[in-house]
Design a protein around this nucleic acid. Sequence first.
DNA 1: GATTTACTTGCCACCGGTGGCAAATTGGTT
DNA 2: AACCAATTTGCCACCGGTGGCAAGTAAATC
Lengths: 344, 344
Amino acid sequence: MQKQATINDVARIAGVSKRTVSRVINGSLSVGDTTRTRVEKVISELKYSPNTQARGLASSRSYLLGLIYDNPDALYLDDVQRGVLEVCSNLGYELVVHPCRYRSETLVQDCLRFMQRSKLDGVIVLPPVSESETLALALKDSGSAYVRLSSVALDEAKHIVVSDDRAAAAEMARYFAQLGHEQIAFISGPQRYKSSTERMEGFQLGLSAYGIKLRPDWIIEGNNTYETGIECARQLLQVEHRPTAIFANNDQMAAGVLKVAHSLGIKVPEQLSVAGFDDNMLASRVIPALTTIKRPVRQMALLATSKLIMSIENNDKAANNVAAKVAPTLVVRESTARVAGSND
Amino acid sequence: MQKQATINDVARIAGVSKRTVSRVINGSLSVGDTTRTRVEKVISELKYSPNTQARGLASSRSYLLGLIYDNPDALYLDDVQRGVLEVCSNLGYELVVHPCRYRSETLVQDCLRFMQRSKLDGVIVLPPVSESETLALALKDSGSAYVRLSSVALDEAKHIVVSDDRAAAAEMARYFAQLGHEQIAFISGPQRYKSSTERMEGFQLGLSAYGIKLRPDWIIEGNNTYETGIECARQLLQVEHRPTAIFANNDQMAAGVLKVAHSLGIKVPEQLSVAGFDDNMLASRVIPALTTIKRPVRQMALLATSKLIMSIENNDKAANNVAAKVAPTLVVRESTARVAGSND
DNA sequence: GATTTACTTGCCACCGGTGGCAAATTGGTT
DNA sequence: AACCAATTTGCCACCGGTGGCAAGTAAATC
């Protein structure tokens, strides 16, 4: 158990004061070139690395970021986490993960306490927690740095990264219409989430451009899980007259639709087109592979983390200049086709 | 932005010294009952919560645990992370995640530096990184608390949680044999990982009890990804005489086999039985749903975290008493069946 | 050469707790 | 009442850095 070198060791060996060493570490401008190189040499010889706790205590910085989320899809979380970590490790931050309950009464309190306890420099908030205005206000109020991921621009540019789910859903509508579908059903996510309503409205808007209107009984609400996907699909497919195409709010539910269709002997895409949203790993694994909307999750994570770190390092202007909006794109695979009997 | 109460505030208001407040916080025995209650009252009135950095600096504790892994399956990582976090939040720890490169030359250095930088109290190491003896030694050497997840008992009980993959694979062998399969292929994981060799050997051992021997050219090495699952499946299935059953080292590769079988018009399970290992979300989503081995990932995570925290809190004896071994179990679904033409 | 100006560097207090030890208090004995 | 042990509390140094300001040094100006 070798003892860790301290700033004093470096100072003594380099023959300077520890204040100067501190300056070198923090890249202060006012250090002479010769001094700087000398100190840097000693630092690398000693493999010295500053104690984050001491540093944090003195400067109220921790080089710790937090990731706040509520029970998201494992694949989505993983994508985000990878993206965030990539930026973190490049810029010398570590990431603390913090699941919480969006609908709990103590959400705000819980999150603030989390930040305070670990003295986080900032947090990234994932949907649906990101949709809580109470939390956002509390964060702003406590002077914390934060960035929210969302599908609507509900905050200042420096605090948010938005994916235009509405436009993407509209594109899916266009695609369905061009394949000749008119009997179309939609399995929505929970209506209390903005991401759900955005996608639904975008889809309806897109269809209306082709004069197509969703039948109210063909809009069914799931909760974004595979299991509810199955339930909703049963309602839509175990009937006399069924839709020729189903758009689900995410890939998990679309996978549920495939399962039900298969068990009912309905051929996809010949007799039924199915599409999802996300383009996570599952989408390409299932048979037939899902047509879906690719959400640029990784890109959002990168942007959010950059923004966050910029605003932490007191460069709010730069944080504002980082792009705040990304566009999901349509990915066509095997689960969708021209409607049977249509020729146009 | 309300300022946070400090230990001095509490001390002043309660009319005691801050050393006494510190004692109350840490549950020291030698505090009078009246004093204790008085201090506790003030603490809760002020909503005081100790500054972790200062605390850490003084006592070299951080209440931070680390999770070290290398590019695992997203679903596996998510399961582990959930389990770990559950225990963490109950016991007042936070979790810092740290991906790294198992095969990098700087692995050990990188991990130690990570622990040091953030002053972690301990780490949980996932496979395959957990198989690095160099890292384990370095951790032990540096006096760090750590627990490894693995499929072989390669460390003292207090440092490891093992899943008996070998026995589980043998059970799959038994199941295959009892279905009448003799023409069996195995898609292994990278042979440099113990988890891969354990499963392979267990499978072979299990088969040999029924007098079945794997043909050497029907043992193919993949790297646990869906993509290599596809490649391996092509090699096994695009030939004149093909196996009647394939066991893959994990669910991802098994999903690849399903895909190839489907594209070649081979019916699963009628013409080909397929099984995976893990029982992650994917296994039940694909069509047909995969027969697989359920790894008790969550349970392992819970055990590992408990062990770790016990050994941090200087209770090595207790850590040793936490069960160190868990048993994966066979889950039969739709992708396996009696071999065609067999009646026994 | 003296004075101003700009740039480097060092000193010391402080961040908010904990550890070791001494001091004060309590209660029991003789 | 004096003494002693056990319990409870307080004092002060210290953990390893950073901030503010003063001091020192070199270059620029007159």
